[in-house]
């Protein structure tokens, strides 16, 4: 860290900018404690009624559990596929390495709405719409590129010499990977886990095409709720989402450090 020499006007400017960026998010918190029937700020009366309403809204609760389970499964599969993929692409450097990397990270460059439509068309023909496995596959299309990109960068920055040292000491390739490469990739793996989970948990566009009447994720359920009603229930859901995201970010910060993980 450099010594802090930020001048006062700069500090004020930064504070104003942060306020501008965060104001909508911060506003959600008081609104969630509103006692009114409709969204308004500032609320005329205060209560916990919308948190009670949320607990009694079975559609919303079941969508939350769907999102949580979906995020967890998608994260596990993404990592299980991206770790070996990153190893092959970065360490084994075969003729197709560059092509493979670009191919797997290409979905990042496509508009999600186009991806959503494409997946809809394919899934409609094979009867995957409105199924949990359909959601898992759909989310994998967008989480895999993130996981691969983060892990490939992590691995690319690791000194090859440590793995070489391990092999001169008698480590077979698989042992070297397990005992040296994988532990050294830990910060990247934590970052990829957090990213995959948050991207999946937060995903709306593709999910909109894939959910059905009996299966919905929290963001999609929230979206439908806002379409039909304007009550402060959405604010209480939003507050819970904000805290969940904060929790994930804080876990990452405590384990490997935030700047080390996301700023590269």
């Amino acid at each position: 860290m450099e010594t802090n020499t930020t001048s006062l006007p700069m500090k004020v400017l930064v504070a104003v900018l942060f306020l501008f960026l965060l104001a909508p998010v911060i506003l959600v918190v008081p609104i969630s404690f509103s006692g009114e029937q409709v969204l308004s700020f500032p609320p005329a009366s205060w209560s916990f009624r919308w948190y009670t309403a949320l607990l009694n809204n079975s559609a919303m609760i079941s969508a939350f559990w769907t999102s949580l389970l979906l995020g967890a499964i998608v994260t596990v599969i993404s990592l299980a596929a991206a770790i070996p993929a990153a190893y092959v692409i970065v360490r084994m450097r075969t003729a197709g390495s560059g092509f493979l990397y670009n191919f797997f990270t290409a979905p990042l460059l496509l508009p999600t709405i186009v991806l959503g439509l494409a997946i809809l068309i394919v899934f409609a023909s094979i009867g995957f719409l409105g199924t949990f496995s359909g959601l898992v596959i759909g989310h994998l299309v967008i989480t895999m590129p993130y996981a691969l990109r983060v892990l490939a960068t992590t691995l690319g920055n690791l000194p090859l010499a440590c793995e070489e040292a391990a092999s001169t000491l008698g480590g077979r390739p698989i042992t070297v990977f397990r005992r040296v490469t994988l532990p050294m990739m830990a910060p990247g793996i934590v970052a990829a886990t957090a990213l995959c989970f948050l991207v999946s948990f937060d995903e709306v566009v593709i999910t909109l095409f894939l959910t059905g009447p009996r299966l919905s994720t929290l963001p999609v359920q929230l979206f439908h709720h806002v379409e039909s009603r304007a009550d402060p229930l959405v604010a209480s859901v939003s507050v819970l989402l904000i805290f969940l995201t904060l929790a994930v970010v804080m876990i990452v910060d405590r384990t490997v450090g935030l700047s080390k993980t996301f700023v590269k």
């Binding site: 000194p159 010499a161 008698g170 070297v176 040296v180 532990p183």
Partner: peptide, 15 residues
């Protein structure tokens, strides 16, 4: 891994 040689690297390459 079967050569039985001890190599000391310029960068030390400690784990």
């Amino acid at each position: 891994y079967k050569r039985d040689m001890g190599l000391v690297f310029q960068s030390y390459a400690l784990f």
